[in-house]
Design a protein around this nucleic acid. Structure first.
Lengths: 178, 178
DNA sequence: ATCTACTTTCAGTATTTTCTGAAAGTATGA
DNA sequence: TCATACTTTCAGAAAATACTGAAAGTAGAT
């Protein structure tokens, strides 16, 4: 007994979304991002409607505490925002769906959370060994300096990119590739 | 009773190296890299001489199994290589110290290990929902397509950069910043 | 063939990270 | 003021990850 076409299509869609949520979770893990956070994000960028905490708990089969924490983390990254519908107490969430904007947000946050602490640590090490005598000390200082200078350059480039518009960067990237 | 200058300097150097090793370990963790692997790497890039497994175990106070595993992982990334000194059975290790080369190695490996699986997963999701009827399905497919296209562009850019010479990229970056 | 000087493996353990679920907290409105 | 409808917190449990140390494996030298 064959099901009607629209019903089959709907099932395929739901399965594909599930697949995407799962995969995005795995990918997130490889990128050092908590699996659930990546899954919640995946769910929100591929869902047409606003979602409540309860709906997310239900979809992903996770506890309230877990849903809550990861929603807060996503908000703090700026990847999703909370919306209050008038007349309702419940909080709803929606994701930034523009891929370029998502990318810029992630660049900025990773820069802030990972690159800048690294720079600070390197500069501290460089400063400490600045005037030390001996070939070994000089070599150490030089190596740290090279790392530090590189990170600084990378930082500037990332900052500039994350402030650019998609409309200026994408054509540029295409030109760069030629 | 004041110690002679060179002795003080030596102590400062060793402390700074320790500090660097610790910090690099923490930074590695933030980047999704195992702490010990980052520490072993830090040790090898800031040490003038070849190091044996035993010396690394001693410096970092880690077990043989742990040292072994992380050295192998670093070799598989291409960040360090093993050297056999003639006349000796023991294996020694040295790191790639050129910062640009290190950067390219990391780009290439992360592309291979993280970006490509992500691309494959997205393409699969896009293909599955290609011809589906309904506005929701169309929106889903469009969003996945946008992500997929973006990753593909990023992949190309990363590939190109990781194949470039420092001598061509660094001046270019400086120009880009202006 | 055996010894020696190593490297490799892996079962069990420790540590870190993440998750649950229930209790506590807060704001609205009757 | 109290009830309701939520959000937030957090101690303990579970899961994932990393580490140890000892035993097994390997290869050159005698």
């Amino acid at each position: 007994m064959k099901k009607p076409q629209p019903e089959n299509d709907r099932r395929t869609l739901l399965q594909a979304r599930d697949e995407f949520v799962t995969q995005w979770g795995t990918i997130g893990t490889a990128w050092g991002i908590n699996r659930t956070m990546a899954q919640v994000h995946a769910l929100l960028i591929t869902t047409g409607h606003l979602m409540s905490t309860d709906e997310i708990m239900e979809e992903l089969k996770i506890s309230r505490g877990n849903a809550h924490k990861n929603l807060r983390d996503l908000v703090s990254w700026g990847l999703i925002r909370s919306v209050v519908r008038k007349g309702e107490r419940k909080e709803f969430f929606e994701a930034e769906k523009n891929v370029w904007k998502m990318f810029c947000i992630i660049l900025r946050e990773r820069r802030r959370r990972e690159l800048r602490p690294a720079q600070a640590a390197l500069q501290e090490c460089a400063a400490r060994t600045k005037g030390l005598k001996g070939a070994e000390a000089a070599a150490f200082n030089k190596q740290i300096k090279a790392l530090s200078d590189f990170l600084e350059l990378a930082d500037s480039v990332i900052t500039k990119i994350s402030r650019s518009e998609q409309s200026s960067m994408v054509p540029w990237a295409l030109k760069f590739l030629k």
